[in-house]
Amino acid sequence: MVTLAGDWYTNGTFWAAMAVLVALVVGAATVWATLKANNPKLRLGYGLEFTTELLGHGSAGLTVTHNGVALSSPHVAVVTVTNEGRRDIVSSMFHNGDPLLFDLGGSVLGVLDVQITPSTGPVPFAHIVGATYGRVALDPCHLPRKQSIRISVVLDGPTSGIAPPRPLVNVDIRERKIPVMSMPSPFAAPMSPQVKRVLAAYFLTGFVFLLLLANETLFGKK
């Protein structure tokens, strides 16, 4: 037969176990924060902000030319590239010094404008690679954290979307349907196996102490 032990708030074993559990949680949080600080996340977001047809049904008799050549179906598209990470992306992170290439699935003819937000520092150089089936090229550059680049281009024909560019060195590249300017959650990045093992050990030890606490606090032999 078992009987309930004394009040939990007067039980010394309870408070000792709680102190150990708190120490384990604080230790796990310290390990996580240290690893995150030593390995800041690098992330680049890109997307096709919009595409617009220049000549509609009511534009009979109007002609749009590029370098003296009339376009049959002129369109304007805007490609957005944003540093969404927690530190700057530098030119040395471009693989072999090659530019980022964005394939819009159409015949890109030229760059109309390049803008940066916030408008501090030099404007990166963007151009078109390819004679008949052009792609948007962004040359290696310094991209401060939270800075966004908007590249306006002209096409002869509609675009079918945007293909992922060649990866950068140690930079996670993700397509964004709508450019994301907010701070990414620190919990979004996957944890390494080492961190998972440390956290698992902490919480397993805490679980064992809770079992001992329940046995000691709630029950006692008559």
Rank of each mutant, 00 (worst) to 15 (best):
H57Y: 11
N39E: 06
G61Y: 00
H75V: 05
E175V: 09
K221G: 14
Q147E: 02
T34A: 14
T63A: 11
A214Q: 06
T65M: 07
D156S: 10
T34H: 12
P144W: 02
F203G: 04
V78K: 05
G56Q: 10
Y133L: 12
N11C: 07
P164H: 10
T82K: 02
L42V: 05
W8F: 11
A60N: 13
I178R: 14
H75T: 06
V154Q: 00
I178L: 11
W15Q: 05
T80H: 04
I162H: 04
T10L: 12
C141W: 02
K196P: 00
S59C: 08
A19Q: 04
V195S: 11
T159D: 01
D172K: 13
V136P: 02
V208C: 07
A23G: 15
M191E: 10
Y9C: 08
V111F: 06
E53F: 00
M1Q: 13
T120M: 01
G157Q: 09
I162Q: 01
T217P: 01
V81A: 06
V20N: 02
V195R: 11
F187R: 10
P124L: 08
S182V: 11
V108I: 09
R150K: 15
K36D: 14
A77Q: 01
Q194H: 11
L168E: 08
F102P: 04
R86W: 04
H95V: 12
L62M: 13
L21H: 04
A200W: 08
G130C: 08
L155D: 01
A29R: 12
S91G: 02
I128F: 04
W15I: 05
V26H: 05
Q194T: 13
P140E: 05
E175T: 09
V129P: 02
E53R: 15
P74A: 01
L213G: 02
G106K: 03
T34D: 10
L44V: 09
